[in-house]
Structure formats: structure tokens, C-alpha cells
Simulated assay, not measured.
Amino acid sequence: MKKSILNMKSLDIYLSSLSKEKVNQIINFQESDDSPNLNLLSFDVYLQNFHQIRNQISRNNDILTVKNMSKKYNWSNDLDSIFKNNSFEALVLTDLSKRIVWVNTGFSEMTGYSKKFAINKTPRFLQGSHTSQETKKRIQQKLLLGTPFKEVIINHKKDKSTYKCEISIFPLKNNFTTHFLALEKIAL
């Protein structure tokens, strides 16, 4: 039953993208005994494209959210360049005390933690027994320098499994640093 509902929704989406003439041709199609059985495999292709479009919209919304915060805090960083030159699955924005003030949905998908849970915590809650002390020290030292950097750290998901996280951290500045933006992705 669920599959047929999904197929009907897919059909609705597909049909809404067609011209009236094409829709009428499909609706008025009459199958004869000698006509081939046509499976609608095109929906799989359409759905793949739909997911790509949805992911791009989500990414654009995340970037827009950060740009709106940039206006609020008068950051002088070239955010267009940052996002153009760095891929990400998750975004984490922290204040100077390294408390999380915002995360995107990708953060929840990557870690298993809700946005609400992450707010006002430091990213240290993702660290655990497999997290290297040397890596943590390097990150702390680089944060103090106030320049962008990349690092790979082993973090822990909510389910306690580990993952290698590549983080690109950018100090966000007006006259001085006010926040840190981390672009994160699973390291291979």
C-alpha cells in the first residue's frame, strides 16, 4: 500500500511537470492487447534528480542562513569564496567561547544529534575515547591563531560509533573575531 501511495505521489509530481497536451496524451492512452507493457522506470530517474535538487536547495538555504547572520554581525569574510571552495555535509557556528549557536540539518544527519541538543554545547560533546589528544591540541592552537585551517578528527555519533570528520574552520570577523564557522564532512 505504501509503495503504491509513493508511486501515486511520484506520478503527481511527474505529471505536474508536463504540459497539458502531454498530460492529456498520457491520460487518454488506451492499452491494447498487442501494446507492450511499459513500466514507468523514468520515475526512478526523476526521483534521483529530485533528491539532487532537494540537496542543492538545502545547501543554498544553509548558505543563506549564514549570510543573513553575516549581515547581523557585520562579518567581513568572503563567504561566497568559502562556500565555493569548500564542500560540506554539516555546518556548525560557534561563538568565541566555542558554544554552538547554530547547526544545519546536515549536522543532525551526520552525528545523530538533534539541532536542539547541540545548541549551547561545545563541539567537545562529539569527542570520546577514540579522539586523539594531539589533534585536539592542534585545533586549540590553530583557533588561537585566528586563521582558517583544516583538520581531521575522530568524533563519536549519538549511537557511539566513530567517524573521521574533516573540519574546515573559519574565524568570522568584523573588527575582530566574533564566531567560528566549521564546514564538516566525513573524511574518507
Results as ranks from 00 to 15, higher is better:
Met1Ala: 12
Lys2Val: 08
Lys3Glu: 11
Leu6Thr: 07
Ser10Met: 14
Tyr14Gly: 07
Tyr14Arg: 01
Lys20Trp: 01
Lys20Phe: 03
Asn24Arg: 07
Gln25Ser: 06
Ile26Gly: 03
Ile27Pro: 00
Phe29Val: 02
Phe29Ser: 05
Gln30Gly: 03
Glu31His: 00
Asp33Met: 09
Asp33Gln: 09
Pro36Val: 15
Asn37Cys: 10
Leu38Met: 11
Asn39Gly: 01
Leu40Gln: 14
Asp44Glu: 14
Asp44Met: 09
Tyr46Gln: 06
Leu47Trp: 08
Ile53Asn: 06
Gln56Phe: 13
Ser58Cys: 06
Ser58Leu: 14
Arg59Tyr: 08
Asn61Ile: 10
Asn61Met: 08
Asp62Thr: 04
Ile63Val: 15
Thr65Arg: 01
Thr65Val: 11
Val66Tyr: 02
Lys67Asp: 14
Lys72Arg: 08
Tyr73Leu: 13
Trp75Pro: 00
Asn77Lys: 04
Leu79Tyr: 01
Ile82Asp: 00
Phe83Arg: 02
Lys84Phe: 14
Ser87Met: 10
Glu89Leu: 06
Ala90Asn: 05
Asp95Ser: 06
Asp95Ala: 05
Ser97Gln: 10
Ser97Glu: 11
Asn104Val: 10
Gly106Phe: 04
Phe107Ala: 02
Met110Asp: 03
Gly112Leu: 05
Ser114Tyr: 06
Arg124Cys: 11
Leu126Cys: 01
Leu126Glu: 01
Gln127His: 05
Glu134Ile: 12
Lys137Asp: 12
Lys137Trp: 08
Arg138His: 11
Lys142Val: 05
Lys142Ile: 07
Leu144Lys: 13
Gly146Arg: 05
Gly146Asp: 09
Thr147Ile: 14
Ile154Gly: 00
Ser161Pro: 01
Lys164Leu: 12
Asn174Thr: 15
Asn175Cys: 02
His179Ile: 10
Lys185Glu: 09
